[in-house]
Nucleic acid binder design. Structure first.
Lengths: 218, 218
DNA sequence: TCAAAAGTGTTGCATTTACACCCATGA
DNA sequence: TCATGGGTGTAAATGCAACACTTTTGA
């Protein structure tokens, strides 16, 4: 019987919070990489699919299920983990921060959201993973509806636009943005509006279908 | 120590041959799945990256290196292989058939090119892999230059167009195709032309850079 | 001179970009 | 009445799709 590498998953959990794109990191307990941060993850037991393992990891740290979760890439450099050859299947999840109840997994010393703009020192090859994940997120934002998973059920168009601007890192034209979003037909107007502050109340919208789809197909 | 699944690679090797998109399949030796076909692949030994394993598999069956090779997806269903839990990292390779010297790997009974239009019964979850690979190939053909890996160094625009038509499965307009290709600036005219048959000779072109790149960036 | 593939431009349509003012509200 | 964010339309430019004839060659 040939000896093959071990299999792990890492889950890159994005949210938009405090006007920034943030990622959930855990801090490992000594003696492993203390002072470094890493994505939630771990070895995959035989009999469990990597999707299941990623879903489980996501649930154990945030308490949420049923959010957008996508396989990103498989990282397999034999030296990526100094303790032995571990092939890691990376996943990306998008969560709405208001639904989160963070919990520190048993094997971790700490957990928290950190902005991708100023990432901390990362363990293993997690810096590569993060770069790739951000790139993929920006790319898919443009031609899918996955942003639904970052927002509450009801939201204003300005909130939606802010999420796009924060992730893409550039300002968008308000009129063109609204025209485009509404023309895609994936949003539904709700009868309600929000009144906050001394100005005109904003209409609330929601996604017709809160599931991933490619925009041309809508 | 936790027991994790074994790690394998499968390589989906595409070529364009006989006016069809074809894939390289091997037939397993008895007692395993005889009568079924599968992609070249196998377990990844500890210490080898999956890229290396895929490159090696490609070389062992076709004798080529330095062609387009891309990670496709990781398949991890615990039941995908009835003999035990094997996570397979699938790769896609694109080769130019004229450069190929097929060899039957020791553990296989047979090897050959088969058209994707009429795929044979496939072992494991290889039918799923194939569908996904075709989809990805079509998609990437539209916004990258990866087609370079399917053609000889020098080719005519008609040959290039045929490759696109065969993979996409629909006819393309000759004038629009040429306009588009030439405007992207990724082709170089060569001084030579080919004369075959009783008609005007065709100019030969080649790719400026025979390496994968996204078309907007060119 | 004929057959066969190579090669070449223009027009309409759809999509994207740029851009500035009025509206509704609470303080 | 003023400050604040919500909401709206038009014109130019760009990109894409449709479409037919002339050129060069060898037989």
């Amino acid at each position: 019987m040939m000896i093959t590498p071990k299999v792990a998953v890492d889950v890159i959990i994005f949210t938009v919070r405090n006007e920034a794109l943030q990622v959930l990191f855990v801090q490992l307990k000594p003696p492993l990489h203390t002072e470094m941060w890493a994505f939630p993850g771990g070895l995959v037991p035989s009999g469990e699919s990597t999707e299941e393992a990623a879903t489980r990891c996501l649930f154990e740290t945030t308490g949420v299920k049923d959010v957008y979760l996508e396989q990103l890439y498989t990282f397999s450099n034999p030296h990526r983990d100094p303790h032995g050859h571990v092939v890691s299947v990376a996943y990306v999840a998008l969560v709405n921060r208001t639904r989160i109840n963070l919990r520190v997994p048993g094997k971790c010393a700490n957990i928290g959201w950190l902005s991708v703009a100023t990432p901390p020192p990362l363990a293993y090859d997690h810096a590569d993973m993060l770069q790739y994940a951000i790139q993929r997120l920006r790319w898919k934002l443009e031609y899918t509806n996955i942003v639904y998973s970052l927002l509450p059920r009801d939201f204003t168009l300005t909130e939606l636009q802010r999420v796009y601007e924060i992730i893409l890192g550039r300002p968008l034209d308000k009129r063109n943005f609204r025209k485009k979003m509404l023309s895609l037909g994936m949003l539904q107007v709700t009868p309600r509006a929000v009144k906050v502050g001394a100005h005109r109340p904003a209409r609330l919208y929601r996604f017709r279908r809160r599931m991933p789809m490619i925009i041309e197909v809508l």
